[in-house]
Design a protein around this nucleic acid. Structure first.
Lengths: 199, 199, 199, 199
DNA sequence: ACTGGCGGGACACCCCGTTCCT
DNA sequence: AGGAACGGGGTGTCCCGCCAGT
């Protein structure tokens, strides 16, 4: 029964399987066994490619952080186009993917994970901290473009947006909130930072 | 946790023990065994007083919700006194007790808990939803008092404040953020809702 | 399904189950799981009563050593009765029970076991060394009784008997050798030590 | 093991590696992986040259049996020279090489091996049975030479010697017993079979 | 009513013999 | 030939729910 064939991308297969599990069955269903079973590979594959189960999860989180920053790159390229709210809603919807929510939940629930992630995210909640950074950069770009007031604080604004959006997305059990709901909280958050509004 | 009421009851002893564990060892350390051990009672006691371990946690959460609303009552009584920011900072610091953070983390990580809590908190994240409601009521009171602009949206504002504050408090691994940091995010959130700021 | 009833002799049940397994399925079938399954108890019972799986086996061996010495006591009481050969054959048949053979095999095959047993049997093969000691004591008693020549060496004689008998018993795959075969090797071993045979 | 023949062959390399492992790390360290690693070849090599891992071990045992019989040939050539005890001590020391002890231990511990070896050694413990046969032949030769009494039973004597020697050698954990100890047990075993000793 | 052992399941980690693609 | 993967098994550990004794 052994195939003998080397999985040319064992790591990717395991990551993809883990994300499917997180979306389908939630964070508590993520075990080394369920992952390898979902990936259709042998149990030992995970331990051959990762030091530890926690190591796997840490790298899954890091992958998510990379994806988050890549969303940030796309977002930044939209600076000056469409509307700020529209751009933010799009980015937030991609950032707060169910996988992100599940991972954030795991991180805050399991002590060991948090400790290991201190190395990559020293302060703040992993993924969310990077998401805030990404939003902040975008808002700075919009500030240069004149679509955000010069006296606004992009960092504080981003922090507010991420915190509020996380609360919104985490409030939905299974699915995603309506775009209109996201739009509403984003609009509310930046209302004071828009140029039209004089102090 | 500081209820002031004498722990004459086994239930109270278990609740107190659970909260001590959450603060000391984090959410992953909360098991039926660790609780009864911490309380110094036999394992069976928990199951005599609660249907289930999840039932125990649900009631622990409900207790926290009650405490949150009682903080809301105190907060509402401060409407019109001191400053809005000061009052909010005090309330948030009490609301986002480490126990709250740990419980929220458990709720979002464990599917079963979330499902059972739908009965008491149909929408939003349990505890946080109630906290937002509490803040909203307070802001409404301040609106009546004229310290929040009439055209502000207390509900949206409260949602933003809770989301942002949660992100801030959850970002601290062990301890609590500085009061100044809390003040900063609160001040930033309500800056557009203060009467002095003309549109 | 839990009975709740405390196994009043959990250790004995586990020992008995292990010996049944050794006899029925051989040394390689002795795992912590198979033992608890055979005993009809929960997996945790073994680890509640023994530090380790190896600890369990060590104690199983020690039990066998105790049984061996108790056979020695019975044997010694037969000194002067029946015939020396008959008495020895009876004792050897009881000493070289399939369980003994399986345990000796395990001890010599698994390094860890041997190391732990150094504490109880510093020199020689555990169980077999004690068996030789037992036989030696008996022969000494017979020497006093005049049924073994005064110039015979009981220790060397016992060592020869145990070594030869072990080879005989271990040579039988499943069952036991005929009594006549045992008698033959015993008779041959002590032929030079009998009083009738002048040097 | 010291065959003197060049290890030009993969089979020989594997056999040599296995014997090194048996001597260095004991029977429990003999796995297909450790062997190929020790030999510095790929894991597949073993299965290319042997049906099965057990097949490999069986052939290793057969090799040992061959070596034992070749020791017998040398021994038989010493009949009539030096002393019987001296000749036997030399042969036994070569026969009970650590590799032999480890293999005998494996055979008695692993059911499958024993079954397969029934084909080559129908009765008795493999290797030891052949060793007894070898000693028996030698004693028969000495009987012809008049150095063993005519009424002695070479087969029974050989059986006793092998059993006793095995017990002696197996009792040493790592190393070998002193030559004097071997001499002692051999001398004791044949004392009654020497011509000088009249019945 | 409390106590503490038990049942049963799951989990991470590890090792083994084996197969077979590169 | 080399080495990754496979399927199975084993150990130690944990957890929850239960319940016979005390």
């Amino acid at each position: 029964m052994p195939t003998g064939v080397a999985l040319h991308d064992a790591r990717e297969q395991l990551f993809a399987a883990a994300e499917r599990l997180l979306v389908r069955d939630g964070p508590s269903a993520l075990t080394s066994r369920s992952i390898t079973a979902e990936a259709g590979v042998a149990k030992g594959v995970l331990h051959r490619h990762f030091d530890d189960f926690d190591d796997f999860v840490v790298q899954l989180v890091q992958r998510r952080i990379l994806l988050t920053t890549s969303i940030g790159v796309s977002l930044e390229q939209t600076a000056g186009t469409a509307t700020v709210v529209h751009n933010l809603v799009g980015a937030l919807t991609r950032i707060f993917h169910p996988v992100t929510l599940a991972l954030v939940s795991m991180i805050t629930a399991r002590d060991g994970l948090r400790a290991r992630l201190r190395a990559v995210t020293p302060i703040g909640v992993p993924i969310l901290a990077e998401a805030a950074s990404v939003i902040s950069s975008y808002l700075l770009a919009e500030q240069f473009a004149g679509r955000i007031r010069a006296d606004a604080d992009p960092g504080a604004l981003a922090f507010t947006i991420i915190g509020t959006a996380h609360l919104l997305f985490a409030g939905e059990l299974g699915g995603l909130p309506d775009d209109s709901a996201v739009e509403e909280i984003v609009a509310h958050a930046i209302v004071g930072a828009e140029p039209g509004v004089a102090p």
